[in-house]
Design a binder for these strands. Structure first.
Length: 263
DNA sequence: AAGCTTTGACCTATA
DNA sequence: TTATAGGTCAAAGCT
């Protein structure tokens, strides 16, 4: 998969660029974003040992750590999308628009890679900030299943954690035998402030997920209602990828967590 | 009727 | 060893 491009992955996953775009903007992001751009954070170790770190210390650690190597799920579509955060190497942003992706030059080194990342994030941010204005908070049902990164998610718990003032929602992938989970931290105003992915999907992205076959068609409609799903971006909202803006403490916690999971 | 969300209780890990 | 925090379970209710 090292030679597999994002586009290829899209194709192989049965998602065409157009759809992908919709997935990211209307499914994965928006919903996740709901309102502001979420602070993407992932506990999911990057599948490939690529220079995706905007934080050398952390990633060098990760790269050296068994986490990366032992992450069996890393070989599959990890987190949310079928495409892991390897995308951070600058050219494969999972949520990056195809056109943008294609114009991204390959990072020459760690430093440039870092710049690329930063750029990619910012550009992406702009693109995402534009789209659609959001009104009000995002209902939990949007935040949850809607995680249409192509996968189905079921909320199994919510908790107010001390670490952050915002409540965390816990989701499991609804695919049979899939152990993938994600934790979404949502601010009081409905903005998703943090998303943590745990475990990878051990299955291909279900094609039906875009149109949830769940009984709650109403919910599905609401979920996919652009006007309600898309977000207006505030100045404060920003995409903070795990790799770039997470504080050391959090990252350490994630690493701990990953280690535990890996055992 | 199936599947999902909600929510309090319970379990486990960590300091 | 104990207290606290984080994560999960599972029953109830909803769509």
């Amino acid at each position: 998969m090292s030679s597999t491009s994002f586009t290829d992955l899209l194709a192989s996953s049965g998602v065409d660029p157009y759809e992908q775009d919709e997935d990211f903007l209307g499914g994965f992001y928006p919903e996740e974003t709901g309102s502001g751009l979420p602070k993407f954070k992932t506990a999911q170790p990057p599948p490939l040992p690529i220079s995706q770190s905007s934080r050398s210390f952390a990633f060098s650690e990760l790269l050296d750590s068994p986490l990366l190597l032992s992450s069996s799920h890393s070989l599959i579509s990890p987190t949310t999308g079928a495409f892991p955060f390897q995308g951070f190497n600058g050219s494969d942003f999972p949520w990056q628009l195809p056109s943008q992706t294609q114009t991204q030059p390959q990072p020459q080194n760690a430093a440039s890679a870092l710049q690329e990342e930063t750029c990619g994030v910012q550009d992406l941010q702009k693109k995402q900030e534009d789209p659609v204005p959001r009104e009000g908070k995002v209902p939990s049902y949007m935040v949850s299943r809607n995680s249409n990164d192509g996968y189905g998610w079921r909320k199994y718990g919510q908790k107010q954690v001390k670490k952050s003032e915002n409540p965390r929602s816990y989701f499991k992938c609804t695919y049979p035998n899939c152990v993938s989970k994600k934790i979404v931290e949502t601010a009081s105003d409905g903005q998703i402030t943090e998303i943590i992915y745990k475990g990878g999907h051990n299955h291909p992205k279900p094609e039906f997920t875009k149109r949830p076959s769940s009984s709650s068609a109403a919910n599905a409609r609401r979920m996919f209602n652009p006007s309600s799903v898309v977000s207006e971006q505030s100045e404060s909202s920003s995409i903070s990828f795990d790799y770039g803006e997470v504080d050391e403490e959090k990252e350490q916690l994630d690493i701990k967590r990953l280690k535990r999971e890996g055992e």
